[in-house]
Amino acid sequence: MRRLFDEELADLDASFTEMGMLVSETIGKSVVAFVNHDRETALEIINSDEQINQREVAIEKKTFEMIALYQPVTIDLREIVTVLKAVSELERMGDHARDVAEATIRVKGTKRSASIEETIATMGEQTRQMVKDILGVYVNDDAQGASVIAANNLSVGQLSHQVRLDVITNIEKDSELATSGTDYLIVAGHLKRIADYVTNIAEWIVYKRTGKIVDLNPGNSSSFV
């Protein structure tokens, strides 16, 4: 029975990691599409969002089946609960990546700011890397590494704040940037939320490893609105 449980848990971890890589790739593509004004890629991202949703449903179903069949306790139960919680965070990240793609569709024909889009591109790359890195930490069951990655949320928040300041400054100088400026703020907000979700996964990894509920970035989510 123990061998079967370990094998199914390994399969569950593999499915979670595959979903996470898909989400990381989608985030990267959505931001690149936004700054490159690539509506075709944006439409592909929007249309493929269901793939991420389906993976979440399949993983959740598997966790419930394992709980019912094996009735795990202590650390085994924590491992399954961590997957169940973390997969929900990944699905939300996918939703935000889709929303970034939808912003790409909206900004067609509006006046743009290359400097703000450069900041958003940097923000997007940092966020994508955080998602990718947290998957490695999850696989290695590295509570300390989880804390390090969560700390990167501060940098993403600072970039989000910079976008906000630059949007205000640019609109004051040129009112024609008001429409695109609104979308810059929205996109920066989506990327900040993704980074917040990475922090949530990091906290669940610490729980998985130690059994303790921690707050790795207290107050950070609202520090750079």
Rank of each mutant, 00 (worst) to 15 (best):
V131P: 03
A33Q: 06
T82S: 14
L22W: 05
E7V: 10
A103C: 13
D49T: 03
L135W: 05
Y70R: 06
L84E: 05
V137N: 03
Q158D: 11
R78H: 05
T74I: 11
V156E: 07
K62C: 02
H96W: 06
K173Q: 14
T110N: 03
G145T: 03
S147N: 10
D174H: 05
F224L: 02
E102M: 10
I171P: 05
A86E: 00
Y70N: 05
D166A: 15
G124L: 10
T82Y: 07
L43M: 12
F64T: 09
Y197V: 00
D13I: 13
N153F: 10
T41W: 01
D133N: 14
A10I: 09
K111Q: 09
I52T: 12
G94P: 04
E89S: 11
T127V: 12
G189T: 10
K208C: 06
V187P: 01
F16D: 08
Q158G: 03
D196Q: 10
I59F: 08
V23M: 08
K62D: 09
V206R: 03
V73P: 00
L177I: 07
V100L: 04
T182N: 09
I205E: 00
D166T: 02
S88W: 00
A151M: 12
L177Q: 07
I213G: 00
A151E: 14
F224R: 04
A101G: 01
I67Q: 01
A178W: 01
E44V: 08
T179G: 03
R92I: 02
F16R: 09
A97V: 04
V137F: 05
L159M: 14
I116G: 01
T82R: 05
T182D: 02
A103F: 04
R164G: 08
G145S: 07
K132S: 15
A195L: 03
E7A: 14
S24Q: 13
K173H: 10
E117W: 02
R39V: 15
S175E: 12
I116Y: 02
S147K: 15
M1I: 10
I52Y: 08
E50L: 10
